[in-house]
């Protein structure tokens, strides 16, 4: 598996990241070297009956109302806030 610059740009877009053009080539090479490394698993056998399940949950906690964080507390770390909400620039004119 080898990715091209365009694939890297696509992945960056999916990841909400951007790179300077001159960094892309090196990043692509390093990325491909990592993919070459993880591709080792492609030749490994897995028994047909092996299944993966998400982390075993021992038991779920009782669904009861508990005290939560106060609004001000949640907003404490927001870069911008307005009237008790997270504030972002206008999305529609």
């Amino acid at each position: 598996m080898k990715l091209e610059i365009e694939d890297i740009k696509h992945l960056a877009n999916l990841s909400a990241l951007e790179f300077e053009e001159e960094r892309l080539e090196k990043f692509k090479d390093e990325f491909n070297s990592i993919l070459g490394f993880v591709d080792q698993i492609s030749s490994a056998d897995v028994d047909g009956d092996l299944e993966y399940s998400p982390v075993d949950v021992e038991e779920l906690r009782e669904d009861k109302v508990r005290e939560s964080f106060a609004q001000e507390k949640i907003l404490e770390n927001a870069p911008k806030q307005k009237m008790g909400c997270f504030a972002v620039p206008l999305m529609m004119e």
Binding site: L3, I8, L11, S15, L17, E18, F19
Partner: peptide, 19 residues
Amino acid sequence: RSEGFGEEVKRRIMLGNFV
């Protein structure tokens, strides 16, 4: 995200999205 994360973190986010 681009300004906040370092190179290795970006690499792993992209690798994760790829797989």
